[in-house]
Design a protein around this nucleic acid. Structure first.
Lengths: 347, 347
DNA sequence: TCTCAAAGTTTACGCACGTCAAAATTGGGA
DNA sequence: TCCCAATTTTGACGTGCGTAAACTTTGAGA
């Protein structure tokens, strides 16, 4: 069992190198002479030493930490987004800290406090659509670089960057496809938890009108403040289908999780064809290309967001802000990515 | 805009309270006189101060941090488990740090290093099934309290606690139900990424033999070292169904994600009944009750793990170890929870 | 072997806060 | 109004490491 060493001072004594040199070595192994580098590395092999995380960050201009706040870890959309951010961050030697706002503005604010107290170099956040969120992030953005992903804030903060999906393109792609291949779609919106909700609805209305069709929203009783999209959509459509409404309609859902609930309700009411070669009357399309969507029966027609690009891009943008890249506009930058249509069985 | 205050020293000056008293206040607000408590709290209202996270943890016996390591954040099973651990931890004023091993033993080891360097009070880990994992955690357990969750290690560490699901009970429940209502099930195991895989298979064999049936494992070509369970199961069964094998069998899958792939393959080959009142020949059952399972078509018959209990219990156990509860066995404790059968349409 | 720049060592201070001991206040009851 | 225990303040040191300045050693080329 290797000798346990607690401080860098002890380490210096144990391998015969001065502490400042060790400190330099840990910051950048190439900043010391090759021969002493080898001596240190050999020494480290023989002992059990881990630099103290807190002590190293306490007195440093950059902590090498970035914070990410998402609303729900149990939503695969955000789980994938998180991974897409974490990957380039790890490559750039940043440690990413995740906080879950659980859809609550309070927890979101508390997460911000935590990140401030940790002197993170920057924050990437998928915000809630609340007013309070906007205030919190307005304050935050005066103290730290911050980039929004996936959703904007209800009131635009002119100085904050945004990276997300091009909702106009994605919805337009779906509307065009659906109109070309069958009945013009109705739109099933999502609970207005963030700004994607109104954005996609507006995009739907615009696309339909451009094609000369009348936009029709699926009637929803009350929009619950919940992230249980599948159950919500199922309840709504179970009611509709049970009363004979929408049974041969084309339904464009604001995301795949809603579409999942719709498909389930359709199955219950016998509205799904048994074999994929039988044309169904009811058609359902989603948005996001959730990993489960291709495994449903029928598999879900949807559009795939470019997670990789969004994650990478938001991190890079944050990095440039952190490094004070002056070629960036001081007013917020905006990057949106197009989606790819995935035609499957449901529409 | 409130006055920004960076250190406790400044805070002390700003609100007229000595620094040690402030320090005591932040550790426990009730440890100061009510009148000075009020004075401090009023003062805090007027300024913008956040204690430095690193400085507060640097020189403290307990950091109030616990680490959690899971193999995959994009697997809803682990996402839910994580939340179930985080909830009681937050109530007990612990901050939980998550690390994702991405199924890699290297990253798992690195996560351990990180936690050690942060002086976390304890670690909860859902381990990989690798040999190397066992070594890493053996070392870790000599320095920190640690509890394993969901899966054991390939070689039992006698001194480490374990909290998970009672695989014997869950599989036995499913086997009994399936045998009672139709053909005895075949078993579709999962890639041997952790110890649940062999455990569930052994439980299946035992249950079948006890009922006097011959256990039959679904033939799998090569077991890939992958977490893409749905795609894996789909590929395997697409091949089988395409050749006419298992088309009227009952298939018990080691988890819901595999079952999802099986159902998808069944749909492709027209093996699913159109309406739920038509008896299917092919039956599929899963394990875990993934949130999506009830929304599939057909909805999946499965067993629900008791996430809440597993999460709460593993945290409590860790807490007792941290606090040095002497009523605990020094040899490892073991807690397993029973599952609940969810009978739905697929079997 | 000499030379000089490169690299390492010494020494010392700083970071923001925890914590302890001794001295000074405070406040409620007698 | 006096007194004493409870609190707070003062002063000082510790945590593990970053970092700067001055000084010493090293090593490749002349």
């Amino acid at each position: 069992m290797k000798q346990k060493i607690k401080t860098m001072e002890e380490l210096a004594a144990a391998i015969g190198i001065s502490r400042p040199t060790l400190s330099r070595f840990f910051r950048d192994a190439d900043s010391v002479r090759a021969s002493t580098r080898k001596k240190i590395e050999d020494g480290l092999e023989t002992v059990d030493y881990v630099p103290n995380f807190f002590a190293t960050r306490l007195n440093r201009k950059s902590t090498g930490l970035i914070g990410v706040i998402i609303p729900d870890t149990e939503d695969l959309f955000f789980a994938r987004l998180l991974n897409a951010i974490e990957r380039p961050a790890l490559e750039a030697d940043y440690t990413v800290l995740r906080q879950n706002s659980h859809g609550s503005a309070d927890l979101e604010a508390r997460a911000v406090e935590t990140f401030l107290s940790m002197n993170v170099d920057g924050v990437i956040v998928a915000p809630l659509g609340r007013e309070s969120s906007a205030d919190v992030f307005a304050r935050l953005s005066t103290r730290l670089p911050i980039v929004l992903v996936d959703s904007r804030l209800p009131h635009a903060l002119p100085s904050v960057d945004f990276v997300g999906t091009n909702n106009r393109q994605s919805i337009d792609t779906l509307v065009n496809y659906l109109c070309r291949t069958g009945a013009p779609p109705h739109f099933f919106g999502m609970p207005p938890l963030n700004t994607n909700s109104p954005e996609r609805e507006a995009a739907y209305v615009a696309s339909m009108e451009r094609l000369g069709f009348k936009p029709v929203l699926v009637e929803v009783p009350a929009e619950p403040d919940s992230w249980e999209f599948e159950a919500y959509a199922y309840d709504v459509m179970d009611e509709h289908f049970g009363s004979g409404r929408y049974v041969d309609a084309t339904i464009l859902c604001a995301n795949d999780r809603l579409a999942t609930g719709v498909l389930r309700a359709a199955g219950k009411h016998g509205l799904l064809p048994r074999r994929s070669d039988v044309k169904a009357k009811l058609r359902v399309a989603g948005h996001d290309d959730n990993p489960m969507s291709r495994f449903m029966t029928p598999s879900l027609t949807t559009v795939a967001q470019n997670f990789e690009a969004i994650g990478r891009s938001s991190f890079r943008l944050l990095l440039r802000r952190i490094e004070g890249d002056t070629s960036l506009e001081s007013s917020g930058t905006e990057e949106v990515f197009d989606t790819i249509l995935r035609i499957r069985e449901s529409a």
